[in-house]
């Protein structure tokens, strides 16, 4: 119980300090992925002249938006959580505290911000006349919650490893970039070269943009087996990440 309130405390502190001293405050949370969306939208639609990704997809921008927001939440949560143990070393070295709280808070605050951003962009797209299915927004948020579990699992793993292997955090942006382009965010699975398409199978993130598009844009469809597999994978990653974290946790202080 006290752990939960600690997580909430750290989330509050994180949110407050992130946008403290900026003019628009919390608006930045929305502005940053919006700018990203605008840039990618412009480059892909006007420069690369990307065709609409599928016959029944309503344009590239909504297609992209449904991939970009979950990715932003996932990647930001991961990169913040990876260094969180190291960043809070002054605290960890002097106070006996449940360290997992720090990791949870880092991931949760990213998902909170970009989850809200996702809702906002969905409503905005709907107001601009994009045939987006707002009724399935709660289902989309459930998908987000599942993605949170997956992200948390990776976050535990990376945060624990980072304490020992400091190369992880400088390598992480490259890794995330690779991961982003290896996920069906800018493209649909169908437009991926056929001989490499099976590679998407091993990408645990690939499921999420597709699932969101299926529920909110009715673009493509996801079988229940794919849903179940994704859930299983998320839970397995979480359990494995937690196991590694718990194993290494008692030794953090020695290596910080």
């Amino acid at each position: 119980m006290s752990r939960l309130s600690l997580v909430l405390h750290f989330i509050r502190r994180d949110l407050r300090n992130r946008y403290l001293g900026t003019f628009s405050g919390g608006l930045w949370a929305l502005v940053q992925p919006l700018v990203q969306l605008a840039v990618y939208g412009f480059v892909f639609v006007y420069v690369f002249k990307a065709a609409a990704p599928g016959a029944n997809a309503p344009g590239f921008v909504p297609f992209l938006a449904l991939g970009l927001w979950p990715w932003t939440a996932f990647s930001e949560g991961l990169s913040r959580a990876t260094t969180t143990i190291q960043d809070n070393a002054p605290l960890i070295r002097k106070i006996a505290m449940p360290r997992e709280v720090l990791v949870c808070a880092a991931v949760a605050s990213a998902f909170l911000i970009h989850g809200l951003g996702f809702c906002a962009i969905a409503v905005a797209l709907w107001m601009f006349g994009v045939p987006i299915d707002l009724v399935s927004l709660p289902f989309a948020l459930l998908t987000f919650a599942q993605l949170f579990l997956l992200g948390l699992g990776f976050a535990f793993l990376f945060a624990a490893l980072q304490v020992f292997v400091r190369d992880l955090s400088p390598a992480l942006p490259q890794l995330l970039m690779l991961w982003m382009f290896a996920s069906p965010i800018f493209y649909a699975r169908d437009s991926f070269p056929e001989q490499y398409r099976s590679w998407l199978q091993i990408n645990p993130f690939a499921h999420y943009p597709e699932s969101l598009r299926a529920s909110m844009l009715h673009f493509g469809s996801i079988g229940w087996r794919a849903d179940a597999t994704a859930l299983l994978v998320a839970v397995c990653v979480l359990v494995a990440g937690w196991a590694v974290f718990r194993r290494l946790n008692p030794h953090f202080e020695d290596f910080l």
């Binding site: 309130s5 600690l6 405390h9 502190r13 300090n17 809070n88 002054p90 605290l91 960890i92 070295r93 002097k94 106070i95 006996a96 505290m97």
Partner: peptide
Amino acid sequence: GALLELGAGFHPEYSGRDNIALAAAL
């Protein structure tokens, strides 16, 4: 209640008040 090596585990970037709140939460 512990006070180890000067300072009860303060985060240098945050204000005194924030650190009080955190220490109390912990």
